[in-house]
């Protein structure tokens, strides 16, 4: 061991390394969708309570990210994409990440209970458990359906946001869940198509590795088709409206078209243009989710201005 790595892992990580443990990019999605869930709910919270609720949901999501990095440090070390994370890079020890994740989980759930309500807090605790234990520890390394099940963890935040305001669950919050839940598999499988050697080297049973790339392409198209009804149904509930429906119709047509384009491509074609269509589909999927939730926000704005369509 060189003397440089002897310094590392001695508890002298910078503040930024602990921020990295929270997976800030995933957190931005959690913040945005939880915020939309909270804002479109029919009950209005005091702005400071709303702010605190979103903050603690985000911290809870971050805590589950830290627990995920603690458990997955061994496979993160083998993948190019994740090699620079704080634990594999030696800047934070596994024990530090575990303690940080557990402590932050406890604080975020307790504070969400005090700020909003205990149903939302229990929901957040369940989400952390689902991501850290059910997905990361039990399923990620065992089944090629890992992405499908793991997607549920990412789909809970808007439901928690809604629960902060209303104290319960409704058809609107369930459809927001379904939108993210059905969107996650095509999003990550597109990523797996152009990050291919990474997952196989780490031994994670991604669908591309276990069932082949042609099957993965078919799965992507199937999910874009199954996703569309949920996305459109959300527009017919109390949080939807003509603006949302217009956006949803256009985005879903584009998503299905993109999925169909991936199915028609062979691996040789994809390798020839360095997975251009796959990368484009991945970027489109990010815009797809963002714009759906942005349209919900727009509808909430119209509703509070008195332009409720239904």
């Amino acid at each position: 061991m060189s003397d440089i790595s002897a310094y590392d892992g001695t508890g002298d990580a910078g503040f930024g390394d602990f921020v990295q443990l929270l997976k800030p990019r995933v957190m931005s999605l959690v913040v945005f969708t939880a915020m939309v869930g909270l804002i479109v709910a029919p009950v209005h919270l005091h702005p400071l309570v709303a702010f605190a609720s979103i903050l603690f949901i985000a911290l809870g999501g971050g805590a589950s990210g830290a627990l995920n990095m603690w458990y997955d440090a061994d496979i993160d070390r083998q993948m190019r994409r994740t090699r620079g994370r704080p634990i594999p890079a030696g800047r934070v020890t596994g024990g530090e990440a575990l303690g940080f994740g557990l402590g932050l989980s406890l604080v975020s759930c307790l504070m969400l209970g005090l700020a909003a309500n205990w149903f939302a807090a229990a929901f957040l605790a369940f989400t952390i458990f689902f991501y850290a234990v059910v997905y990361t520890i039990w399923l990620k390394r065992r089944t090629p359906q890992n992405i499908v099940i793991g997607g549920a963890a990412g789909a809970f935040p808007p439901m928690i946001g809604w629960a902060c305001a209303t104290g319960g669950i409704s058809v609107e919050s369930l459809l927001m869940f379904a939108l993210i839940f059905m969107w996650t598999p095509p999003h990550f499988w597109a990523l797996a198509l152009f990050m291919k050697d990474d997952y196989s080297r780490a031994g994670v049973p991604m669908l591309t590795v276990t069932h082949g790339r042609a099957v993965t392409r078919n799965h992507i198209l199937a999910y874009t088709l199954m996703l569309a009804p949920f996305a459109l149904a959300l527009g017919l509930t109390s949080v939807g409206g003509p603006v949302y429906l217009t956006v949803a119709v256009l985005l879903n047509l584009g998503f299905i078209w993109g999925g169909a384009r991936l199915v028609r491509r062979s691996e040789t074609e994809a390798e020839a243009d360095r997975y251009r269509a796959e990368r484009a589909f991945f970027r489109y999927s990010l815009a797809y989710l963002f714009l759906h939730f942005a349209a919900l926000l727009a509808e909430a704005g119209l509703h509070s201005a008195g332009y409720a369509a239904w």
């Binding site: 009950v43 209005h44 919270l45 309570v49 909003a116 309500n117 104290g167 319960g168 669950i169």
Partner: peptide
């Protein structure tokens, strides 16, 4: 924002909420 009895306002716990 609490009411005269020290309870939180009704808005945060609407009727029909499932705790």
């Amino acid at each position: 924002r609490q009411d005269a009895h020290g309870n939180p306002p009704a808005a945060t716990q609407p009727a029909g909420a499932t705790p």
